[in-house]
Design a protein around this nucleic acid. Structure first.
Length: 213
DNA sequence: ACCCAGGGTCATA
DNA sequence: TATGACCATGGG
């Protein structure tokens, strides 16, 4: 049982996921913040509102009052906090020179910079690195911890960075590693949702041992 | 009515 | 370092 085996099981079972849903790098970045501890359909409503307001760009978000911004993103939950986080992120993003500048940074430097923005934690930073900047990093989320600890491939108690390096080094010889890590995380999220839906019997679970019993 | 979702920050021990 | 409280909507 290996990481790659799990990947192929999920891919053959569910097919390509075509992540991240979004038309531009900035939409992906905003979505990564809005989806923190939130179901994606709620995020879609918030993004739709931002598009209707022509506000899905860093300049408009930065110059819109936090109160108004919070009202637009209300469906995504935690709207006061997320409005503040979006504005902090846009302030940093514009200051650094936006995508044309940031895309030239080395991955480690870009990660450190992202993590320095208030409201951007490890998972959100890696979402942005992988799906907006197409860097070969892996995103560790609650599904990943739960599924792979049940499979006996990782320890749930390990820290975020330890788990991330474990996945990345296990798959480092794959060609087009970015595309693989992109697909892998998306598949894990999809599988996690399916599994929750099938609890507790979990019949037809392609990973078998991942069932709850 | 209850549980949780594609997390992160901050205060406390 | 490591817990706990807090943030808040919407779907099951």
């Amino acid at each position: 049982m290996t990481f790659k085996w799990v990947y192929h099981q999920l891919l053959s079972a569910y097919g390509q996921q075509h992540w991240w849903p979004g038309d531009s790098p900035f939409e992906i970045m905003a979505g990564a913040i809005l989806t923190q501890n939130t179901a994606w359909p709620n995020v879609e409503k918030a993004i739709t509102n931002l598009k209707q307001q022509q506000a899905l760009n860093p300049q408009t978000i930065l110059h819109t009052s936090q109160t108004k911004l919070a009202e637009w993103i209300r469906p995504s939950g935690y709207f006061n906090i997320k409005a503040e986080r979006l504005k902090h992120y846009c302030d940093w993003y514009i200051t650094q020179g936006e995508y044309p500048v940031l895309r030239q940074w080395h991955t480690e430097k870009l990660r450190d910079a992202l993590l320095s923005v208030k409201g951007i934690g490890p998972e959100t930073a890696d979402d942005i690195l992988l799906y907006a900047f197409e860097r070969p990093v892996f995103v560790i989320d609650a599904y990943t911890r739960r599924i792979f600890s049940r499979l006996g491939l990782v320890n749930d108690i390990e820290k975020y960075e330890e788990l991330r390096h474990l996945f990345e080094s296990a798959l480092k010889h794959e060609d087009d590693k970015t595309a693989l890590l992109n697909e892998f995380h998306a598949l894990i999220v999809w599988h996690g949702k399916q599994h929750c839906k099938n609890k507790p019997s979990c019949e037809g679970c392609v990973l078998r041992q991942e069932c709850d019993f």
